[in-house]
Nucleic acid binder design. Structure first.
Length: 703
DNA sequence: GTCTGCATGCTTTAGACAGCATGTC
DNA sequence: CTAAAGCATGCAGAC
């Protein structure tokens, strides 16, 4: 394949300078192919190639050349906040060309109006979908969309949003990036783009299986090569070999518990580590302030041996320490759940896929095989540019017969085809509400738009014919020649909650008097379709039901499946109730057997839902409910009792410092500014100083 | 009485997006 | 509707 030299590239010299500063001299095969297909001339492309094959640079070239040729604005969309943030920092380099780069997501929200000043905006699919509902003028000026990790469209939960965004984005110029998919021509046709497919990788990948073999193991690769390993544990034997040869290992397991126990087993291998580096890393671990003490202790013991586990139960701070330690090659082995397969870039020489089965939440006892796409995401992490001449990815299997089947299914087959996930009521009705929120249209116009999705004509019609009456009957829309949103519908669309969640909240609040029982509201919201889910152990069930401090709105269901959801919601409500009663974080984690990462994500979701319910109650004129919900929402964000609400407005002051200050008579930002010495005495000089400055800013902002 | 080893039965099971106010990551 | 690993429990046997 002919590679394009940077100097031959038909772009502004300043663009080449930025690329040269990154050490780029020649475009790689994928990038060269994209350029040949007309990337720089604004050709619509669907680019499918493996992870880490340099697709980001293609997007950058596409966006920048578009903007330099008079394009007004480009939006780059990813499925994860972490990726959004990562890309944002990469794209910052283009500000040297006078292009302003901005970012927005639910986490780092930038004011809609302010985004008008940016030409290149990085965001998440959900945020972009939400922006379309709010309809800021600058969004309609956007004339170039990059949709990254587009294979997420095949995800049962998140896919509908990707599809919804694609339908709107494809009216403008488009660049779609995806991992390899088998039906790329069909998808390209739908997107009115040309499919460009390559299998090129910067570091070659050898994929194989790890099979028991006469007292040891044999690793067989797709290229026909193989080698033997001795030992009685396949994972340990393979890990030892790779690390002894100077490589790092990324080890995937299908549950958190397995990830943790495997990490402890690997630690017993006593791999060679550099003491000094390890000590520095452990010092960083100790500084992490958003984690539980048990989690830190477990990780400290493992880090001593150059090992760590990684899953969503860990707080962000902990995950960052681990990811950083691995990137610096201090940590030799990470045992992880699928978090690391899709997230930020974290390659290793070898990847072990410890399990190809995963427990299915819906069907008891059903061990689901992971998808080929998931396997590709995991194995794709093998091979570290600059450190490894090739990557190895192996699947652990029990016997020879499995080996053959697994080999065919995962290594020799293309990933499954992409299909629409809009074919269910919650997803479609939400999509429908979004369409109607964009402006008044007739039913036929909406039908025309909905037919732009990947869903079959028949299904679109079926869901429209049931969805429009449903939204109308429940007061979200009105039909008067044209379809338009009611006040309630508008609020629901803007809040980005599912219409079924709004419906549940509406029904229950209307039926019940307002009560001073936070638990009842928290339980209702956790139980709604947008509510999160937590596992409840057998012993916990009765305890949760017995310990309700005040009666929930919902009755205990008879049906077993419904009961499952009911107690999960009860557990979430109890956790959040402890949280706003200022129960110590370590106590909460221990009491409910959850991790710091779990707590943070529950708080985040419930924060959004309490705010949404407060707004829905307000629109419905349920003022007493709205009043309880408003106060509840204020407390959920920071996890405080009502008396601390003033003081926690100061950045750097949370539930802990807030309580210390309050107990010493400092109850509002003004008090901090008036008593800087007292603040420093209570919080220490460094933090005290910072907090006083922030308090001054908070007051200044109010005036 | 107490400790150990083993068989048996019970329990548990991945991830992560969305609002707003505030300041502009 | 098709599971499997880990951990707790309980029992027998040795000391």
């Amino acid at each position: 394949m002919e590679l394009i030299d940077l100097s031959d590239l038909n772009v502004n010299e300043k663009v080449k300078e930025v690329l040269r500063s990154r050490g780029i001299v020649t475009l790689n095969p994928v990038q060269s192919e994209a350029v040949r297909k007309g990337l720089l001339e604004g050709k619509r492309l669907l680019l499918t190639s493996p992870t880490g094959s340099g697709k980001t640079l293609i997007a950058e070239l596409g966006m920048i050349s578009h903007l330099l040729k008079g394009g007004r604005r480009a939006i780059y969309t990813t499925p994860l906040r972490a990726l959004t943030s990562e890309k944002y920092h990469e794209f910052k380099a283009w500000e040297s060309l006078g292009i302003k780069v901005g970012m927005t997501s639910g986490e780092y929200d930038t004011d809609d109006a302010w985004l008008r000043n940016y030409q290149l905006i990085v965001t998440t699919y959900e945020k972009l979908d939400s922006l379309w509902r709010h309809g800021p003028s600058w969004l309609f000026e956007t004339d170039y969309f990059v949709l990254d990790e587009f294979h997420y469209i095949n995800d049962g939960e998140r896919g509908p949003v990707v599809e919804s965004v694609a339908v709107k984005a494809k009216r403008r110029n488009l660049l779609v990036l995806s991992a390899t998919i088998s039906n790329h021509s069909e998808i390209a046709k739908w997107l009115e783009a040309e499919a460009v497919t390559t299998n090129w990788r910067p570091v070659p990948l050898r994929e194989g299986v790890l099979v028991p073999d006469r007292g040891g193991f044999v690793v067989s690769f797709a290229d026909g090569s193989s080698y033997k390993l001795r030992g009685n544990d396949a994972i340990l034997a393979f890990t030892r070999k790779v690390v002894d040869e100077g490589g790092q290992v990324l080890l995937f397991r299908n549950s958190r518990r397995m990830a943790e126990t495997t990490a402890r087993k690997v630690a017993e291998l006593d791999l060679e580590v550099k003491r000094k580096e390890i000590e520095d890393l452990i010092a960083k671990l100790e500084e992490v302030d958003d984690a539980g003490s048990n989690e830190k202790e477990a990780l400290r013991e493992l880090l001593e041996r150059g090992v760590a586990f990684h899953h969503a139960g860990l707080s962000r701070g902990l995950r960052e320490v681990i990811e950083d330690g691995f990137r610096k090659r201090i940590i030799k082995v990470i045992t992880a759940t699928p978090t690391l397969a899709a997230g930020v870039n974290l390659p290793a020489r070898a990847v072990i896929i410890g399990d190809i089965y995963r427990f299915n939440r819906k069907i008891l006892g059903f061990q689901e095989e992971i998808s080929i796409m998931e396997y590709k995401q995991m194995s794709g992490r093998a091979g570290r540019p600059g450190y490894d001449s090739e990557g190895e990815a192996v699947i652990v299997v029990r016997n020879r017969r499995d080996a053959e089947r697994v080999f065919k299914r995962y290594i020799l087959s293309p990933p499954e085809p992409i299909q629409s996930r809009l074919g269910n009521e919650p997803a479609f009705y939400s999509f429908l509400l979004g369409l109607i929120s964009e402006g008044e249209s007739t039913v036929e116009q909406i039908r025309e738009l909905a037919r732009q999705t990947l869903l079959s004509r028949e299904l679109v019609d079926r869901y429209l014919d049931s969805g429009i009456p449903w939204l109308e009957e429940n007061g979200f829309i009105e039909l008067d020649e044209k379809l338009f949103l009611t006040k309630l519908g508008r609020r629901v669309a803007d809040l980005y909650i599912n219409p079924f969640t709004a419906q549940v909240v509406k029904d229950v609040l209307r039926k019940n008097e307002a009560v001073e029982c936070n638990l009842a509201y928290l339980h209702l919201l956790a139980w709604s379709p947008d509510g999160p889910f937590v596992g409840v152990s057998k012993g916990e069930e009765d305890e949760l039901i017995e310990n309700v401090s005040c009666p929930p709105f919902l009755d205990e269901p008879e049906d077993e499946d419904d009961f499952y959801k009911y107690v999960s919601a009860l557990k979430i409500a109890s956790i959040l109730n402890d949280w706003i009663e200022e129960i110590e974080e370590d106590v909460i984690l221990g009491r409910y057997g959850i991790g710091s990462g779990d707590l943070r994500s529950l708080v985040e979701t419930m924060d959004w839902l309490t705010y949404s319910a407060y707004n829905v109650a307000q629109v419905l004129g349920l003022e007493e409910h709205a009043d309880v919900l408003r106060r509840l929402n204020a407390r959920v964000e920071d996890g405080v009792k009502e008396d601390l609400l003033e003081i926690v407005r100061v950045p750097g002051v949370g539930r802990k410092r807030g309580r210390v200050l309050f107990q010493n008579g400092l109850t509002k930002p003004e008090d901090l500014v008036m008593n800087p010495e007292k603040v420093k005495a209570l919080l220490g000089d460094k933090i005290g100083d910072k907090v006083v400055k922030e308090a001054a800013r908070v007051i200044g902002g109010v005036l």
